[in-house]
């Protein structure tokens, strides 16, 4: 399951980060590392990007970027 496929109000534990180069590094730098808990809070009015919460802060990324983030566990809050 990837992060773009879960609904607002759901969360998950990251298993791996795909992609490459700048994008991938950026995701890692922002704390989207393996075993991190991340929640989807919201989807923007036009359907993209999405709003996440992790490590006690709020981050927005596009669905395309979210599709690179693989989750190992999905839960509802």
């Amino acid at each position: 399951m990837t992060l773009d496929n879960i609904k607002p109000g759901q969360g998950g534990i990251i298993s791996s980060i795909g992609g490459h180069g700048m994008l991938r590094r950026r995701l890692l730098d922002m704390g989207l590392t393996p075993n991190t808990k991340v929640k989807v809070r919201k989807v923007a009015p036009m359907g993209d990007p999405i709003e996440l919460s992790l490590r006690n802060y709020v981050l927005t990324i596009r669905k395309e970027e979210a599709s690179k983030i693989e989750l190992k566990e999905v839960f509802s809050i």
Binding site: M22, R26, P49, L59, T60, I61
Partner: peptide, 12 residues
């Protein structure tokens, strides 16, 4: 070339 990825903090 690759655009800057849109990975942005939403500060309080």
């Amino acid at each position: 070339g690759e655009p800057i990825p849109f990975v942005m903090e939403l500060p309080a």
